[in-house]
Computed example of a mutant assay.
Amino acid sequence: MAQAAIHIEMPLGVVVRKSPGVTRWAKWTWKAVAVLPGAGPADWAEVRREGAVVDYHAATLPLVLWAAEAEAYVANLADSLPSIYLVLREERDGDPPLEAVLVTASPFEGQDYADTGEDIVEKIPMTPGLIAWVRDFTQEHFQPEHFVKRRRDKSRVDLTEDGKGDPRIRQTSDVYRAPRRVLQ
């Protein structure tokens, strides 16, 4: 019997939209709007322009699915809108000012990048074909953990008061009192 691959990979293009900002502090707003499964290489190629709004094929990054992450993919597929998570990093003096770093189908990995606060994590809806590809891989590798109820042991640990209070205190009335210095 053939063994299933522990990971599979697909090139995934990401489309990022540049729109005029709505405040005087932000000249432009950037938002990831689409994915292109199986796309060729790109480096901020203009795809569409409507007035001041421009869509760019920002980058093509590898989407890697790992067998060990199957539980995360199940959580993603169970969402009302399964998504790809795009990690963008700001470039100080770059044009364009964002660098596409990573794409992932794991919401847990996307959350890890969002927790740092240094990266921008965009959630992009998956295409139906991409949902099927992720679902097939997940069904092949996901092993649900069976719930095992923990049984309580019968030993009574509350019968002795080991470690309660300070042994230097001789009074039993206040075992949590701080010890006093003995004056001689």
Rank of each mutant, 00 (worst) to 15 (best):
K154N: 14
V14S: 00
R151Q: 12
V134D: 04
E118K: 08
R92L: 10
L86V: 03
K164I: 15
V74I: 11
L88S: 04
G163V: 07
R170K: 14
A100V: 05
E109Y: 09
D136S: 10
G163R: 04
R156G: 07
V16P: 00
E99W: 11
I131A: 10
Q171F: 14
P179A: 03
R92D: 11
S106I: 05
Q143I: 13
R177S: 08
D55R: 02
A39E: 02
A75S: 12
P37N: 03
I84V: 07
H57N: 08
S19N: 07
P167I: 03
Q171N: 14
V157C: 15
G94D: 04
A58V: 03
E71R: 07
E109G: 08
L159G: 06
A39G: 02
N76M: 02
K154E: 14
D158A: 05
R89I: 13
T160R: 10
I6T: 15
G13K: 03
E99C: 09
L63C: 02
T127M: 05
V53S: 04
P11A: 03
A132Y: 01
W133F: 04
M126V: 08
R49Y: 07
A78C: 08
Q184V: 14
G129L: 05
R135S: 05
A72P: 13
R17D: 02
D136R: 12
P125M: 01
Q184H: 14
E91T: 10
P125N: 01
A52G: 07
P41R: 13
A2C: 13
A32T: 02
A42Y: 01
V15H: 00
F147A: 14
L86W: 00
P20R: 00
E118P: 06
G13E: 03
L63Y: 03
E69N: 12
F142I: 08
S83R: 02
R181I: 08
K123Y: 08
S83N: 05
R49F: 06
D136K: 10
A4R: 10
E161A: 11
A34F: 06
